[in-house]
Design a protein around this nucleic acid. Structure first.
Lengths: 343, 343
DNA sequence: AGAACGACTTGCATCGTTGTAAACCCTGCC
DNA sequence: GGCAGGGTTTACAACGATGCAAGTCGTTCT
């Protein structure tokens, strides 16, 4: 910067003023400085700027599993939003490891980031409760948590509506994949989805059958396939499969197809999240849809506002969802449903 | 750090020595410092460290489209590799925009990164040729380029082998999706894949039919669906579809299934890249497989070594590939093929 | 014409860390 | 007991950019 200043015949501070767009630089001076910058191909040093300003200009996104379609969709949206605001994005994978989640939440500065968008899996209430100086964090997904900002969809209502839909299509024995068996109760998302499902069964005077519920599989296609195989191996009869994510559903669809079980003629299948791929499966997947861009935008807005003012009270934003019916339940589309969370 | 030093009764430099693991700190002193660090919950400022050391400890990954399964797989691997080496990862999306690619290549420092792994689409030789001070960059994918490090697979041979496979399965009229029509010749990857395909046709004394080749679609599932629809709408007959990525193939599979065209009975379908999902389509997708982890590891190794020594000559690493045959061509698996590129 | 004013520019100090070189302290030896 | 020698620790300056307050200059007003 000193060099640029020398070439332009001004002081380093003036170069800084030009770069930061600060008011009060005469057009003639500005031009000279810009010419010098171009001539020397000068690039400001972000470490120095960060040191001085206390801001890195970087936010983090931490997701449990980067290989899933849902992660890909989210990170794409975050990156685009960030880019349009001149912010860089650091990406992290927590592998659903609570220690990693905690580390990120509690020590954002050590990661060179100003704030964090985190999709927690096992982050417990108590953990966040006991961190003294929380950095700006927005949690995405269902978390029982009221100290930090969060964006979520009403999983319980969505799951209720989905099971309702299955029942309306004639399902009576509904297999469930992803209920997070052994750890049920510890992870908010599967718990809520299971509760919604359960409530819908009850409302239809059906009773759940534990033998149709597989929880202890990762939320991936391979996990969905494994879960489906397990249910089939147990020899249970069922007329529908409610998978708690699209990936799980796709794994299940695959196994059903391999076994010659027809969807939707023999078995109905539903997912959750409406990733792009859900439109392209055979048959296309009935799922819970919500606007990923809105979701991320909400998270981003929460984060930016908190970066500007850390004293804001914790906020929660609920994104509306919709049951999108496609071929996998042999039905026709429904419209948007109101967000049932009252927010 | 000053505070930590005060608490521990040492100088800031000693705290720094403890943190950086520098030799020559007496165990007793080290313990006192560590206690002070823990007590104050001290976190070193990475901006300052970066300013002082000239290294940000961050690398960038830039991919054309973050929503694709392939991107997700790559970024996951990069993040894991980086994490194990204590490096953070910034993620960027180029949207295949040459200006963005150029900006990243030429001005890495402005993005707060030490080096870059870039999957270029349209970055032309000439662009890289004319940048004076290239930062450490590794290009992944086929690029006609010999000034910077790169990792690639032998697309041309792979495509040749794939078409050969289709022909061996009885295909005579092979539709091609992804040949990058209007821009053919500008983008290396589709060009190489097309050349391989063409050579295999020729070797089997078949002639290509331009009416079966769709190029002008994005390399996504939607693009694959559109391409497939276009070919069907034209009323052409064909007995196989060679898609240039798995995403394209999945779009094509979807459309074929919707039209009641059976795979592999009526039409064979192949993809390219072997993303996780390729195993879970119905039927599972025959595709070109290569080890994504090896691919990224090679890129990472090239990048680290260059970060340590910028004077290294440009290097190129070819990753072996394999035609993996699955249900979509009704065949049984083949073994690993040698990398045909001679590297 | 002189003073007051505003617009622009500058010098200086500072952010937190670490490389360098010099100071320190202890041990072992003559 | 004093000194060489090493292993530890320290003081200082520097990395590059920017906030602040003080400076410069050219106007405008009386």
């Amino acid at each position: 910067m000193k060099d640029v200043a020398a070439v332009a015949g001004v002081s380093p501070k003036t170069v800084s003023n030009v770069l930061t767009g600060a008011a009060g630089v005469r057009p003639a001076t500005r031009q000279r400085v810009e010419a010098a910058i171009a001539e020397l191909d000068f690039v400001p040093n972000l470490s120095a700027r960060g040191l001085r300003s206390g801001r890195a200009g970087v936010i983090g996104v931490a997701l449990p599993d980067l290989s899933t379609a849902f992660s890909a969709s989210l990170s794409q949206t975050v990156v685009r939003q960030a880019h349009s605001r001149g912010i860089a994005v650091q990406i992290e994978e927590t592998a659903a490891d609570p220690r990693r989640e905690f580390d990120l939440v509690s020590r954002a500065r050590a990661h060179h980031i100003d704030g964090l968008i985190l999709n927690p899996v096992s982050l417990e209430d108590s953990v966040v409760e006991h961190v003294e100086h929380l950095p700006p964090v927005v949690l995405i997904g269902e978390v029982e948590q009221h100290r930090v900002d969060r964006v979520f969809i009403d999983s319980e209502t969505a799951s209720y509506q989905m099971t309702e839909h299955l029942i309306s299509r004639g399902a009576r024995r509904i297999a469930v994949i992803g209920a997070s068996g052994s750890s049920r109760g510890r992870h908010a998302t599967p718990t809520l989805r299971y509760q919604g499902h359960h409530a819908a069964l009850k409302a239809a005077q059906l009773s759940p059958d534990p033998r149709l519920e597989v929880g202890d599989v990762p939320w991936t296609m391979a996990g969905g396939a494994r879960g489906m195989q397990r249910i089939l191996a147990a020899g249970e009869t069922f007329d529908a499969v409610a998978a708690f994510t699209d990936s799980l559903a796709m794994g299940a669809l695959h196994v059903l197809s391999q076994r010659g079980i027809r969807v939707p003629e023999d078995v109905l299948v539903t997912g959750f999240d409406d990733v792009e791929h859900a439109q392209f499966t055979n048959p296309p997947l009935t799922t819970i849809s919500f606007d990923h861009a809105d979701y991320v935008t909400a998270a981003f807005d929460l984060l930016s506002s908190r970066l500007d003012d850390r004293s804001l009270p914790p906020r929660a934003v609920c994104i509306p969802h919709q049951v999108v019916t496609r071929g996998s339940t042999g039905a026709t589309p429904t419209g948007w449903s109101a967000c049932g969370c009252g927010a």
